[in-house]
Amino acid sequence: MSDRGGVVAAATGAEALSTELPVGRSAGWWGMVMFVATEATLFACLLGSYFYLRFQYGPTWPPAGIEAPKLLTPLVMTAVLVPSSLPVVWAERGIRQGQRWRLQSGLAATMVLGVTFLALQASEYAEKLTQFTMTTDAYGSLFYLITGFHGLHVMVGLTMIGWLLAASLRGGSFGSHRHERVRNAAMYWHFVDLVWVAILFTIYLSPRL
């Protein structure tokens, strides 16, 4: 069965076609997947609203009086948030092998990156608020709703991570046989990261296209 024809035949045989896939996931995993799916849809609706209002508005966007968003801060924010998923992955791998120190240090690193992100966002807000607010016009409303709602999600994610860290520091919580919650929180954190990429594209990059 080494030739190509054999491979195709094997993959399209009755047995291969009846492979059970997906299989063996836990209830908690599925629960988190569904939760993330519904949250992702919520963000899709908000971003969709952004594009809808933008295209209904007319040629100048952002509306007169508001300049197109600067890119430096958001790019730095991206550079902080997106890599913050790596320590979580590393931590999760660690606890699967029962290495508690990896769990703890990985989570701590992610906490630092996440808090940095929020601090950067706060400084960006401080600057923007002098220019326009949520009540200036629909653009302002969209900007603060979408970024603020994402910021709230970062905060929720950080709460989860902090909670895991606290539970792990207390001891007796996680190990190679029990790491489900770590994985679920990690999934949520990756999701928050990905949403940020979509927001970066929508709010910061798309007005320049």
């Binding site: 092998q97 029962g98 290495q99 508690r100 120190w101 909670w163 539970a167 207390r170 001891g171 007796g172 919580s173 996680f174 190990g175 190679s176 046989h177 029990r178 919650r181």
Partner: peptide
């Protein structure tokens, strides 16, 4: 609600 109960290390599988 979600706070994990404390379990002995052998049951959790902790190596270090």
């Amino acid at each position: 609600w979600l706070w994990p109960p404390r379990r002995p290390d052998e049951e959790l599988g902790v190596t270090g």
